[in-house]
Computed example of a mutant assay.
Amino acid sequence: MLNWNDVLRFADAGNPTPDRVVRKSEEEWKAQLSDEQYHVTRRKGTERPFSSGMCSLFEPGLYGCVCCGTLLFDANEKFESGTGWPSFTQPVKANAIAYHADRSHGMTRVETTCNTCGAHLGHVFPDGPAPSGLRYCMNAVALKKQAASLEKATFGGGCFWCTEAIFRELDGVHSVESGYSGGAVDNANYRQVCSGSTGHAEVIQILFDPAIISYRELLEIHMLTHDPTTLNQQGADRGTQYRSIIFTHNNEQRQIAEDLLASLKDGFRDAIVTQVAPLETFYKAEDYHQDYYNLNGGAGYCQAVISPKLRKFREKFKAKLAS
């Protein structure tokens, strides 16, 4: 989950790398966009407040960049800010948005642009609701509503390098972030969590399309790709930070998790010790932990632990893999 410090860091030190880049000439943008869309997105204009019905639209869905189609926001992160512009608390992915210091009009603000095509979207402010405290104040004409809606799932099952590598390969999974949850220390770092003193577990947070892969299917994969019967331990990794846990985002997820655990209890020789708890706050881990296996595949831990686990996973769940 991004916070104001992340926003300031991106605006000051450089933005995250986008998944892709789209560049067009001004003539091509003009031919593609309406006059107002072009004025806002390519000339950094601002639409009139309360001029769009999108402000009061809260039905499920996704919002993409009107210029390049890149997914930017999920309706689940939308809230009524009373400002006259659509407002969100988080982008769908940390690298979907780029941030730039804006000192125009005698103010100091942080401009937001599409990290794929550079389209001006609006600004972000540190006066949004908890837990992120962010308000992405967007021009409605810069966004295009899409029918699908993404959901989040948060699991812990040992070292997050392992679990992240597995879930990144599934069809319907939009993104996976490693992080910490379930403890009592705000913004804990890796060293603190590894000490076992914070109460946090190493977890992954998955953004997925339920039309392609269901929450129950994700849970089944989670339960069958780690040992849910060893208390505070996965292999050689020991400590409460490696506990088996399912953090639920709503009551429906809680019920699905409890039903699944009940249905699996006779399938294991030992008792399942997996915890089910409501998610309070997810703290994204340091950048060097993200996509660790793909970026460090030759490292000893990756070769000895993650690669064999991935091979078993791919064979067992090959029908669920992204093409």
Rank of each mutant, 00 (worst) to 15 (best):
K30Q: 14
I166K: 12
Y293F: 15
G183W: 04
K24M: 13
F125T: 01
P228Y: 10
K265D: 12
F73I: 12
F317V: 09
L33D: 08
E202G: 08
M138L: 13
T154E: 06
T83Q: 02
A13E: 15
D127F: 00
G53P: 02
Q233K: 15
S323C: 04
S34Q: 01
D6L: 01
F79N: 05
R103C: 09
R191E: 14
A304T: 13
R23V: 13
L219C: 15
E217W: 05
R243K: 15
D6M: 04
T229K: 07
L321H: 08
S132V: 07
Y136H: 10
E169S: 12
G156Q: 03
W4P: 03
G196K: 09
Q234S: 14
G267T: 07
D270A: 14
E177T: 12
G196W: 01
L218T: 09
T163Y: 00
H174L: 06
R191K: 12
W85V: 07
I221H: 11
P49S: 04
M1H: 10
Q241W: 01
H100K: 13
F313W: 10
G118W: 03
M107H: 11
A165N: 06
C68E: 13
F317K: 08
H200C: 09
S323A: 13
I221P: 14
G183P: 03
T154Y: 03
G297N: 14
